[in-house]
C-alpha cells in the first residue's frame, strides 16, 4: 500500500514548502477496548494550515488527542520538531510547544474569564500579549470578570483559542472551532486563523464544515476508519470535489 502521507506531501505546491514540524507515522490509538486509530500517516509543515476532514467517528478528534498525549494507549511515531513525542505525557508535549483547543472548548466554570485566559502557563517566549489578544477578540476584554461558562458559545470559542495564543506555542491544534456557531462568528474565527497563519503559526485543524475549511486551509487529509485515505492541496480542491463528496457523504 503506498504511503498516502508521502503521496500527499508530494502533491504539496513547492511554494508552501517549509520544514516538517509534525510527522505522524503508523499512529494507532485505543479508547479502552475499542481500537480507534489504525495507523495514521501524515505531515504538517511549518507555517501551514492543514485540515483533517472526515465523517463523524472517523478518528479526527482522537488523532489530535493522541498527538497531545491525552489518549492513554497509543503506538506508532509522532515526531514534533524532529523529536519523538510518543509516548510522552501531555504536560511535557505542551511544554515543547504544542497547544490544543478541544472540541468541547473546555472553558472552566469555576474560573472567571481572566483566570481562564491566564491559565495555560507560558511555555516559551514569543506568545501574544494580552493587548494583541484583545485586538483579535475585543469581546473578551469587556467580559474579563464574568464566569467562564457564562459567555456565549462564540465568546467561549474565542476564549478557548485566545488562551493558547499567550503560551508561546507555535503549533496549534483546533478541534472543530466553528461547531454550532453563527455565521458571523465563524467568519471572525476564519479571519483569526488567517491572521495567525500570517504571523507564522502552524495550525492543524479538524473540521466538519468543509466550506469553512476551504477558506483557511493549505492542504487537506481525508480520514476514514482511523486512517488517512487521501490528501490534496487547496489548489486541487476543485478537481477533487467529486471524490470529496463521496468521502464525506455530503
Amino acid at each position: 500500500m503506498p504511503d498516502l502521507a508521502m503521496a500527499a506531501a508530494a502533491t504539496r505546491p513547492a511554494s508552501d514548502a517549509g520544514a516538517s514540524i509534525l510527522s505522524v507515522r503508523n499512529l494507532e490509538a485505543w479508547y479502552g477496548e475499542s481500537h480507534i486509530l489504525h495507523g495514521m500517516n501524515f505531515d504538517v509543515n511549518a507555517g501551514e494550515v492543514v485540515t483533517l476532514l472526515g465523517r463523524n467517528g472517523a478518528g479526527k478528534t482522537t488523532t489530535l488527542k493522541s498527538i497531545m498525549g491525552i489518549i492513554g494507549k497509543r503506538t506508532g511515531s509522532v515526531r514534533f520538531n524532529n523529536q519523538e513525542i510518543n509516548p510522552a505525557f501531555s504536560d511535557r508535549i505542551a511544554r515543547m510547544g504544542v497547544a490544543f483547543c478541544p472540541e468541547e472548548r473546555g472553558i472552566f466554570s469555576s474560573l472567571d474569564v481572566r483566570e481562564n485566559l491566564l491559565l495555560p502557563p507560558i511555555v516559551r517566549p514569543g506568545g501574544l500579549s494580552l493587548d494583541q489578544i484583545f485586538d483579535l477578540f475585543p469581546n473578551l476584554k469587556e467580559r474579563l470578570a464574568s464566569q467562564g461558562t457564562k459567555l456565549s458559545g462564540g465568546e467561549q470559542q474565542m476564549l478557548a483559542i485566545a488562551r493558547i495564543l499567550r503560551t508561546g506555542a507555535r503549533f496549534l491544534m483546533l478541534d472543530e472551532p466553528t461547531e454550532g456557531l453563527a455565521p458571523v462568528i465563524i467568519q471572525q474565527i476564519g479571519h483569526t486563523i488567517a491572521q495567525l497563519k500570517k504571523e507564522g503559526f502552524t495550525i492543524l485543524l479538524v473540521e466538519q464544515n468543509f466550506r469553512f475549511a476551504s477558506t483557511v486551509a493549505d492542504r487537506y487529509y481525508i480520514v476514514e476508519h482511523g486512517k488517512v485515505i487521501d490528501g490534496f492541496a487547496n489548489s486541487e480542491l476543485r478537481a477533487n470535489m467529486d471524490k470529496l463528496h463521496t468521502y464525506l457523504g455530503v
Binding site: G69, I70, S90, A94
Partner: peptide
Amino acid sequence: TLVRAFGI
C-alpha cells in the same frame, strides 16, 4: 486532562 494538556 485538559489542565495537564496545557503543560501543568
